[in-house]
C-alpha cells in the first residue's frame, strides 16, 4: 500500500534520509519510530509529495507520491508534524475549508470526531492551545473517511485521557481495515497500536520489526525501594541483575524472569516498585545489547 523504496533526500547541511526502505501493507497500522531529528518528517513529506527525492521513490497504491499526489490525496488523510493552520479561522471554518478542498460533503464522521475528542470547534484556531490544535489536525485527517492515513507524531500535545482515546480510535480504524503510517518518538504509543515498526536513526532505517518480537527482546527495568538494608542484600544475593541507585533503591533489569523477581521481592520488605519509562534510545540499546550505541 505505502512503499518507500531506497529513498534518499539530503539537505544542504548534510542531514537528511539515506536509502530508507519500508513497506506498509493494506490494513496495517505501521509505526515509524525515531528520536527527534532522525528523519521521520523528511520521509513523511516525501510520502505526501511535498519534496523531490535525490533518489529512490515513495509509492502509494502503486502511484508515485510526487507525480500523482492529486490522485493519491483523494483517499489520504494527513496529520502534519508541525501544526500550522489558517489562524483566523475557527475550527469549523477550517473543517469546512478542507472539506470544500477535498470535495467531501458528508459531515457525520466529522461531527462524531468533534464529540469524541471534545473539541470546542467554534473557537478561533489562534486562540487554541497546542492540544486543541492537535485535535483539529487529528479530526481533519480522518473526517473525509480516507483509506490511507499518514500521521506525524499524532499525540503530541494531547493529555493522557485524549491519548488513550486516540489509541482506542486507531484500534477501531484498524478493524475497519484502514492503512495507517504513524510516526512517533514514544514507544508506548506505537506498542499499543501497531503491528510492525521501522526504527530510524540519523536518517537510516536501523530495524524493521514486529512489535511482538521487539517487545520480547526489550528488557524491563524496575526501581525497587526497600524498607531496610537487609532486603537490598537479599536482592544482590539473588540471580537478578541488580544495580544500586542509592542506599534504599535498586534498579532491576529483567531477562524474561519476572516470576523470579516477584519471588525474591516477596521475601523482601518493599516500600514501592516503579517501572522505568524507556526512551527509544534505551529500547534500542536493550534491543541490540549494551555494546551497540545509537
Amino acid at each position: 500500500m505505502i512503499k518507500v523504496d531506497h529513498l534518499t533526500k539530503t539537505y544542504t547541511n548534510g542531514n537528511g534520509i539515506f536509502d530508507v526502505s519500508f513497506e506498509v501493507n493494506k490494513g496495517e497500522v505501521f509505526g515509524f519510530l525515531g528520536p527527534n531529528g532522525a528523519g521521520k518528517t523528511t520521509t513523511i513529506r516525501q510520502c505526501l509529495g511535498f519534496t523531490n527525492a535525490n533518489s529512490g521513490s515513495c509509492t502509494i497504491n502503486g502511484l508515485d507520491s510526487r507525480a500523482h499526489s492529486d490522485i493519491i490525496h483523494k483517499n489520504l488523510g494527513y496529520l502534519p508534524g508541525e501544526i500550522a493552520f489558517f489562524d483566523d479561522m475557527t475550527g469549523l471554518q477550517y473543517f469546512d475549508f478542507i472539506q470544500a478542498l477535498h470535495g467531501y460533503k458528508d459531515k457525520t464522521l466529522r461531527n462524531d470526531l468533534i464529540k469524541r475528542f471534545e473539541l470546542e470547534s467554534d473557537r478561533k484556531i489562534k486562540k487554541m492551545s497546542k492540544g486543541m490544535k492537535q485535535k483539529v489536525a487529528l479530526i481533519s485527517a480522518f473526517m473525509n473517511n480516507p483509506d490511507v492515513i499518514i500521521l506525524d507524531e499524532p499525540t503530541s500535545g494531547l493529555d493522557p485521557l485524549m491519548q488513550q482515546r486516540f489509541i482506542e480510535f486507531i484500534l477501531e480504524q484498524k478493524i475497519l481495515g484502514k492503512t495507517i503510517l504513524m510516526s512517533s518518538h514514544m514507544f508506548e504509543e506505537v506498542e499499543r497500536t501497531c503491528e510492525r515498526v521501522a526504527i530510524i536513526k540519523e536518517g537510516r532505517i536501523v530495524a524493521t520489526e514486529k512489535i511482538k518480537d521487539l517487545k520480547e527482546k526489550i528488557q524491563k527495568q524496575y526501581v525497587v525501594t526497600t524498607k531496610d538494608k537487609s532486603s537490598i542484600q537479599k536482592l544482590f544475593k539473588s540471580n537478578l541483575e541488580c544495580h544500586q541507585v542509592n542506599s534504599h533503591q535498586v534498579e532491576i533489569t529483567l531477562h524474561n524472569n519476572t516470576q523470579e523477581m516477584l519471588e525474591v521481592l516477596g521475601s523482601c520488605q518493599i516500600e514501592s516498585i516503579d517501572s522505568i519509562h524507556q526512551s527509544i534510545e534505551q529500547i534500542f540499546i536493550s534491543y541490540y545489547g549494551k555494546g551497540v550505541s545509537l
Binding site: 489520504l76 500550522a84 481533519s140
Partner: peptide
C-alpha cells in the same frame, strides 16, 4: 512561510492547479 500551504497541497489537487 506559515505552513498553511500544507493543507492545500495535501488536498486532492495538483500543484499546477
Amino acid at each position: 512561510d506559515k505552513g498553511s500551504m500544507i493543507s492545500i497541497v495535501a488536498s486532492p489537487h495538483s500543484r499546477l492547479k
